[in-house]
Simulated scan of single mutants.
Amino acid sequence: MTLLQIKTLTVRRGECPVVDRASLSIAAGECVGLIGPNGAGKTSLLRGALGLLPYEGTSTLAALPAKERAAQAAWLPQKREIAWPMSVERVVALGRLPYLARGMVLSPADQTAVDAALTRMGLLNFRTRLATALSGGEQARVLIARTLAQDTPLLMADEPIAGLDPAAQIATLQVFETLAREGRAVLTSLHDLTLAARYCTRLVMIGAGRIIADGPPREVLTPDRLAQVFRLHAEVLDTPQGPVVQPLGVLT
């Protein structure tokens, strides 16, 4: 089942296309990693696909009314900040807003979704603590949990593991991997190429706004493409846990 399809999607900054005629589809059961250097257009592609930026081309999500779109895809932006002194549980419960009429309280099903999200992110013991009193990495986990509580078929996340310690990075990607195995889908931008290769079923490499490669991690991560797109001299080593990208130098 296709959960997102974009065709010839173009997003411009002024006259310059920062996403240039990108086409891809995301199906249930996939965990897709969007990779590319800084400024390649990853964030613009995600936001354009959601209709959060003006775009040309087509996106099945962007075409939906806002409430229906919120029931189909959860969105975790790159900029993450908890501004109000609310408990962790209340912040996570905000993920249920697309399903609540004005003035309604959480139903037992809503509370179950919140509890499941707290459990997945290892936050059950944090539920009564003020979210604003947590560390930056802990707040990031809370906001990921809020996205999980939305319980949508598709989760879209922009650099969700940035600022997390290594164990939390792996735990988060394991959650995404599990969501895909459960029949949902994840589209996430990542900078750690080794973790992307290990936990994503598919990688989409973008450079200068264009999709350069799209396929299984080992087929996408080649020394030639890493040199072309990232200006990186690197080896790609095959291990039982998947490909490991070993940077060796920067190409000039």
Rank of each mutant, 00 (worst) to 15 (best):
K7L: 05
A63Y: 00
T10N: 04
M104I: 03
A101L: 09
Q241A: 15
T60E: 00
Q246E: 13
V32Q: 09
V88R: 10
A149H: 12
A71M: 02
A213Q: 00
P108C: 11
L232T: 12
R225I: 11
E177A: 15
L64V: 01
P98W: 02
L124G: 00
V92N: 11
I26P: 01
A27H: 15
L134Y: 09
G163Q: 08
A83Q: 14
D151M: 14
R184A: 06
G249W: 05
R47C: 12
A196Q: 03
L61V: 00
L193E: 08
G207M: 07
L248C: 11
Q241V: 15
P77H: 13
R21W: 13
A109M: 02
N125L: 13
V236S: 03
I212E: 15
D20F: 14
G136L: 11
Q150C: 02
D224L: 09
T147R: 12
L251N: 10
T201M: 12
V91W: 00
Q228K: 06
R202N: 07
D20A: 11
L173S: 04
L3A: 00
V186A: 10
L52V: 14
G57Q: 11
K67W: 06
L179K: 10
V88M: 12
Y199P: 08
T8F: 06
S59I: 08
R80P: 01
I206K: 09
G103W: 14
I170S: 01
L203K: 06
E30H: 02
G249L: 02
I170L: 06
Q246V: 12
T58E: 05
F176S: 03
C31N: 01
G39F: 09
A93P: 13
V88Q: 07
R69A: 00
E138M: 01
A66R: 11
Q228I: 04
S44K: 04
R141T: 05
G33S: 09
M104A: 12
V92G: 08
T188G: 05
P65Q: 01
L9C: 05
A109N: 07
T8K: 13
L237W: 02
L148E: 04
V88C: 08
N38R: 01
S87D: 09
A49C: 12
A131M: 11
A70V: 04
V245T: 14
A117Q: 12
L173M: 12
Q169R: 14
W75K: 07
A133K: 04
V236I: 12
A117D: 14
P247G: 12
R90D: 09
R181Y: 06
L251H: 15
A213S: 11
A162L: 05
T119R: 15
I26V: 13
A74C: 05
T222I: 06
A109F: 09
P77Q: 14
L155R: 07
T188N: 06
I161S: 03
Q139L: 10
R80G: 02
E89H: 11
L100H: 11
L134G: 03
P216W: 11
T188I: 08
G183E: 06
V114W: 14
L248M: 15
E182L: 07
L134A: 10
S135I: 10
P216T: 10
F126P: 03
A113V: 05
P85S: 03
R90F: 12
Q111N: 13
K79E: 09
P160F: 13
L251M: 05
F126W: 05
S107M: 07
V19I: 07
L100S: 09
D20W: 08
L154W: 02
